[in-house]
Design a protein around this nucleic acid. Structure first.
Lengths: 98, 98
DNA sequence: ATTTCATATGAATAAGATTTCATTAGTGGT
DNA sequence: ACCACTAATGAAATCTTATTCATATGAAAT
């Protein structure tokens, strides 16, 4: 199945696990295991989440030996994050996280 | 309560009802009833959804007589929508809606 | 061909979000 | 003060999404 509506797309950012993955991939592409370890989360959980991110092209995959390296679609995601950051600074609570 | 994390913020776009409200407010500010009628949705549903949008400053409210007029925070929302539109055009399925 | 490492998948469960329905609370007019 | 109109609220029910756990699949090495 594919990402085929705006809300589908935004769901990839409306969840802490996915957002954490996104933040980690901002710096460098990683395999599922690497992510899993850095996050202290189960492999399966990370994999399920990556699947959703991938089907909306928020991340891309590339096979490298046994590993599958996931990387962020920076073209869309970075400006997106910048927008929100700005918004939050301007409008949101001091208690804002992240 | 206030919008205090990125995922909180994005949840306002990760749902068809909220997105419909946003789209309607793009053109013109409206009262709860007006939205409710245009959408063919219950007043209470619209109100609940507006409350969430408002607490993240995605919309703003202004009292006008008995009515409360909701308007879109265009500064954040318009560029956001543009980004997604572009992303969807480039990456997503032909079956893409909206 | 077998083993090992790496990841994906499916189904059941758990968690979370949205909607509904009934009710309450404001605002202005009479 | 009362009425009509407009909108907000709370709790229960429903719907959706995420997580977990067990298992399957794929890729390379031996």
């Amino acid at each position: 199945m594919k990402c085929n509506s705006y809300d589908d797309f935004f769901r990839n950012f409306a969840n802490k696990t996915k957002l954490r993955i996104i933040m980690l991939l901002k710096n460098t592409p990683m395999s599922v295991n690497e992510l899993s370890e850095k996050m202290g989360e189960e492999q399966s959980k990370v994999s399920h989440n990556l699947a959703k991110l991938a089907r909306c092209s928020v991340v891309a995959v590339e096979q490298q030996g046994k590993k599958r390296i996931y990387s962020l679609n920076k073209e869309t995601v970075l400006p997106m994050l910048r927008l929100v950051e700005k918004h939050v600074k301007k409008n949101c609570d001091m208690r804002c996280k992240q």
